[in-house]
């Protein structure tokens, strides 16, 4: 579980996050959605400790990151898996070496143990025979899957994903979404997904945080998001023609 209390972040004069309070629950896929520029990525970077908020506190389980010393922060980081928007695979390493990297860095396992673990997670993301290839030699969707494998190989307690399915075709996007949700349930981890993809919202939106101009304006589940009367949310949800059409049919107009 991650608890966020009144987090404020400014760049120069501009306040990007204007006091966000929310909870990301364990064993669920927690979404952060909102328009471009609403502060989703900044929020994620605050959670990861890449940005320091000016005000407010962020608790991982019971401890605030602001109170952790360097060693505790490093230990926390070892328990974090992150899926970057572009994959961020190390391009000087093979797929196998990429996935093995967190194990080599943070565990004392033998080469065989590590390899078994790597092959397990690669099988989990449906990539069996690509071990020796380099990131440049596989497709974008495959890179994302390798990146998920790398993020979960060391059994993190917290998983963060920044727009996991941007740039993917709808089918692959669904595969990735489902994979993230399966992993979250299976290992009972706290997952935070930044997205503006309505399909993801429907598929895996167990807890949705809707940001607008640096404020949390709505919170709920994917069931609730299609029923709410909150103007900001409906504007966002029904900005796509498809959903607008469905809405109209639903309401009988």
């Amino acid at each position: 579980m991650i608890k966020v209390e009144n987090v404020k972040k400014r760049f120069g004069q501009e306040e990007i996050l204007k006091g966000i309070t929310t909870t990301f629950e364990r064993g669920k896929t927690n979404l952060i959605i909102g328009q471009s520029g609403s502060g989703k990525s900044v929020m994620l970077k605050c959670l990861l400790g890449l940005f320091q908020p000016e005000e407010g506190r962020i608790y991982y389980e019971e401890q605030a990151i602001q109170d952790m010393n360097d060693d505790q922060q490093r230990e926390l980081r070892e328990n974090i898996g992150m899926l970057f928007q572009g994959g961020a695979l190390f391009d000087s390493m093979t797929i196998e070496e990429n996935v093995m990297f967190p194990l080599r860095m943070f565990t004392k396992q033998s080469k065989e143990e590590m390899l078994t673990r790597v092959n397990d997670v690669l099988a989990r993301v449906n990539l069996q025979n690509e071990n020796k290839k380099y990131p440049a030699e596989i497709s974008g969707g495959m890179q994302k899957r390798v990146s998920i494998a790398r993020a979960i190989v060391n059994r993190p307690k917290f998983l963060f994903c920044d727009e996991p399915n941007s740039g993917l075709d709808p089918k692959t996007a669904t595969v990735i979404d489902n994979l993230i949700q399966e992993i979250t349930h299976e290992f009972n981890i706290t997952t935070v997904v930044v997205t503006h993809d309505m399909n993801s919202v429907m598929e895996i939106g167990e807890q949705i945080n809707f940001l607008k101009n640096g404020l949390l304006v709505w919170k709920g589940t994917n069931d609730e998001i299609f029923r709410t009367d909150n103007k900001d949310v409906t504007d966002f949800v029904y900005s796509s023609d498809l959903f607008k059409k469905i809405r109209e049919v639903q309401l009988g107009i």
């Binding site: 990861l48 890449l50 922060q73 490093r74 926390l76 980081r77 070892e78 974090i80 992150m82 970057f84 928007q85 572009g86 994959g87 961020a88 695979l89 190390f90 391009d91 000087s92 990297f101 967190p102 860095m105």
Partner: peptide, 20 residues
């Protein structure tokens, strides 16, 4: 160019997030 391309493709952020 090798460090710069790691920067633009978020590989450096990835290291940092891992606590390296």
């Amino acid at each position: 160019s090798s460090i710069g391309s790691m920067r633009v493709t978020e590989q450096i952020d990835a290291l940092e997030v891992m606590g390296i």
